[in-house]
Amino acid sequence: MIRVPATVLAVLAFALAFVGLVSRYLPVDNEIVLLLASASPYLTAAALASMALFAVARRWAATILAATLCVVMLAVLAPRYLGPEKTSVASVALRVLTANLGMGGADPRAVVTLASSAADVFVVQEMTPQAAEAMSAAGLDRVFAHRAIDPRPSADGIGVWSRHPIVASGAIEGYQMPMLSTRIRVPAVRFDVTVLAVHLAAPWVQPLRWFSDDIARLPETLRALADTAGSGAVVVAGDLNATYDMSPFRRLLDEGYRDAAEQAGAGLVRSYPSRPWLPSVVGIDHVLLRNCAASSAYTVEVPGSDHRGLAAIVDIPADPTAS
C-alpha cells in the first residue's frame, strides 16, 4: 500500500528538483524563474528525497534516474565548497568589505567598528546623506583617510572608503542606481587597483525589467574596466541583487572575473535577508575579482541593515621590483 503514495511524492520531489536545476540555465525573465533559480541549491534536498522515496516504492529505474539528478545537482554545488585555490605568486592582502546600509538605517557606530576591524577598502550601498554624515561623525574618516562617495536619498547612495590613496574616481552612467569606479594605490602593488562599487536594481521590489536591463548591461562595463586596468587587479563589490545560481550572474564571469566566495570555497555565503527573526537565505551581495584572488570570504552582521555584509581577503599580485 505504501508504494503508491511514495511514488507520487517521489515524482513531485523529482519534478521540483529538476525544474530547480533547469532554472539555473534559463534567462530570468519572470518571477517564477527568479525564485526557482534562487532556491536551486536548496532543491538538491528534493532530489535526495525523490531518490529515497523511489527506493522505498521499489521503483528501481526511477531510483537510478533520481540518483543521477542528485549527482548532477551536487556537482553543481561542489565547486563553491572547494578552495581556496593555491598560488605561488607573491601577493599583497587587501581586505575588502561591502555593506548595504538598508536605506541608511544601519547603526553608524557599529558600521565604523565593523569596517575598522575588517577592511582596507569599504564599499557601501544605500547610503543616505544622513548615514554618510553619521558614519563620518562616528570616526569613519579617521580610519579611512580616503573616500569617494555619492550619498543620495533612499536606496541610491553609494561610496568607497579606503585606507590607501584613491587616485581617481568617476561615476558609471546608464544604470538604475549610481555606480562608482575608483583606482586605489596599494603599497607594494605595481598597478593601481580598480574598485567598482555597484548596486543593481532589485528584481522583486522594482520592475523585473530594470534588473534585467542592469545585469545585461554590466558585462559591457566589466569588459571596459578590464581593458582600462590591463594587468592591474579589478575588484567589483556590492549588492548585485542576483545569486550565483542565476544564469545572468554567471555571465558576468565570462571576461576573466571570479566570484570571491566561490574562489575561496566559502559555500553559499548567504547575505539576505538579515533580521534577528529571519535567517539569511540567499547570497545577493558579491565581490568579483579579476587579476587577483580571494583567499577568504565570509558574511558579517551589519546592525540595523536588512543585509549582511560580505568581507573578502583579496590577494593582489605584488610588484616584483618592490623592496
Results as ranks from 00 to 15, higher is better:
L97M: 15
P219C: 05
A119W: 04
P41Q: 11
S295V: 12
A13Y: 12
A226T: 07
G159A: 05
A10L: 08
S271K: 10
L21C: 01
W277Q: 03
A318L: 00
L9T: 05
S271F: 06
L208W: 13
S50N: 02
V198Y: 11
D239E: 06
V11I: 14
P151W: 08
V33E: 06
G232M: 03
P273M: 05
V236K: 05
F14G: 15
R185Y: 08
T44H: 01
G157I: 03
L268F: 10
Q206L: 09
V11S: 02
G230S: 07
P248I: 01
R95N: 12
L97R: 14
A10G: 11
S162P: 00
T299A: 13
A311M: 03
L101E: 08
V76M: 15
P165F: 01
A6C: 07
R152V: 05
W277M: 08
D319A: 02
R142H: 15
I32Y: 11
T98P: 00
N291V: 09
R190Q: 07
A47S: 11
L53C: 05
V193R: 01
L200Y: 11
L53M: 10
P129G: 02
S296P: 03
A47N: 07
I2S: 13
R209A: 06
V198W: 08
A294V: 06
S274L: 10
P178L: 10
P79C: 04
I166A: 03
